[in-house]
Amino acid sequence: MSKSLKKAYLWLIILFLYAPILVLMVLSFNDSRSRATWGGFTFRWYIELFKDRDILLALYYTLAIGLLSSVIATIIGTFAAIGIFGYKKLSYSLVKNISYIPVINADIVTGVSLMLMFVFLGINQGFFTLLLAHITFNIPYIIFSVLPKLHQMDIHVYEAALDLGANPFMSIIKVVIPEIRPGIITGFLLAFTLSIDDFVISFFTSGPGVTNLSIEIYSMARRGINPKINALSTLMFVVVMALLLIVNKRSASNTEKKVRRDI
């Protein structure tokens, strides 16, 4: 009795969490502008989506910002992590915590403060500021994907590379980075996901003429009901979900490997 009650409770929660998305997905295939009536199944909104120049432009910005910011953040964050790792224990936890603050900081605070900084520095907001903002908020995630891998690595492989005649920079490029590659790739995927998913920070840091998909959805929603929003949101949900699943799977298999090696 209590067991089936527990089960029912669990399903209720899942339903509660996913019902809105389910409704969204169903409506994106609804061949009627009304949200209340089912007008039959259609791909119409998806097709219209790819005819809408504003949306295509926003898609372009989203992908461009996503790729550029995650590549740049991955490079900066990886070297930052190696630097943090190289610190002697004393300052290590301090540095680690300082770079963790942006992760737990509310997006709106990050967004507003970045905007204020750009205004203060007199930088016109647009593609460049949006890119800078995304790089900034992505770096900590890279650091925290890479640091555990560094700790797992046998520190002597770095020394072995030096021993064989490679200078410190070469040793990092040729040995350390390949050894921690799984962490770097996971970090990159996470950064890319967070970038295409972000609304709040982008909203405050982009400028006229430059919108990404989430800002586009927001402004479409303000202009009125448009079933294309459903189609676009559904696509974004599926893509982000898929990426997160990959990231999770990678992290899980990484820790599994570590456990196996520890035995």
């Binding site: 046998d154 492989v157 072995a160 021993d163 064989l164 050894e179 590659r181």
Partner: peptide, 21 residues
Amino acid sequence: LPPHKRKVNTVFQKYALFTHL
């Protein structure tokens, strides 16, 4: 003189092989 410029080579206690190669 830094390690990479010394004319000695080391066989490390736990081998420290490059696992990606």
